[in-house]
């Protein structure tokens, strides 16, 4: 675990040593802030965080692959991956360490939206359950997108190709939840069970259900496992 955390710290610092983290956080905050405050100041707004929780999944779907595209693709292109893998580290430690760094970046980004929570609770009776659930759900959903992006980053040297493939996967997972009314009934339950949205909505109600947690942990685990196996495949070729 110490090796994993060393990798995670290094990658996390690397995000903040380059403009990537700042651009990501600032763009996210500008979009979510504008949309959030527009929505809570028209009509009969409710004291909840739904405007943020409704928008953030789409933003993370787009930004997730962008955040992770460089994690392996860039190291492959510059040749630093071989140096990294030559260190006394297992492939899993490298994969998981980089994944944790990306999740850390998302967690920091979400932390900057906490003033929204204080604003809403100052002018309404905010139920803390859906807020905690929503933030947890967002973090899990973002972690899911990041694991997909990390997986595609291992597959290629080209960051753009990694981001595009990652985005296609993420968008499919995002879209599943939106297409349920137009897919054949026999397929709908399966597609729903696979969709990020369905499990996120369940947690965002303020109910932490082990089935939803299991879904996210399974998806993240499988994507990271594929990433590790893909990385390991260099030894077979």
């Amino acid at each position: 675990m110490r090796n994993t955390m060393t990798i995670a710290r290094r990658e996390f610092a690397a995000y903040f040593n380059s403009p990537i983290a700042y651009i990501f956080i600032v763009v996210f905050l500008l979009i979510s802030g504008y949309m959030f405050f527009t929505e809570i100041t028209i009509g009969s707004p409710q004291a909840d965080m739904r405007p943020l929780f409704g928008l953030a999944p789409l933003i993370f779907c787009i930004f997730g692959p962008l955040v992770t595209m460089g994690l392996f693709a860039e190291e492959k292109a510059t040749g630093t991956l071989e140096m990294l893998l030559a260190l006394p580290l297992t492939d899993w430690q490298v994969v998981f360490g980089k994944f944790l760094a990306a999740v850390g970046l998302i967690a920091v980004t979400l932390a900057f939206t906490l003033p929204y929570v204080f604003f809403v609770s100052a002018y309404g009776n905010l139920d803390k359950g859906p807020v905690i659930g929503g933030y947890l759900g967002l973090l899990l959903m973002a972690a899911g997108y990041l694991s997909v992006g990390l997986m595609t980053s291992v597959w290629t040297k080209n960051q753009v190709v990694s981001a595009v493939i990652g985005f296609l996967f993420c968008f499919a997972l995002f879209l599943f939840g939106k297409l349920l009314q137009v897919v054949p009934p026999s397929l709908a339950p399966i597609i729903q069970a696979l969709s990020f949205d369905y499990h996120f909505q369940s947690i965002a109600k303020g109910v932490i259900d082990t089935r939803d947690l299991l879904y996210y942990f399974s998806l993240i685990g499988i994507c990271l496992l594929i990433a590790q196996t893909s990385l390991e495949s260099r030894r077979w070729r």
């Binding site: 803390k128 359950g129 259900d209 089935r211």
Partner: peptide, 15 residues
């Protein structure tokens, strides 16, 4: 996951 759908728990965080 299959087992998890049958054996599951819920934690209600709402006020």
């Amino acid at each position: 996951n299959i087992i998890g759908t049958r054996l599951h728990g819920r934690f209600d965080l709402t006020d």
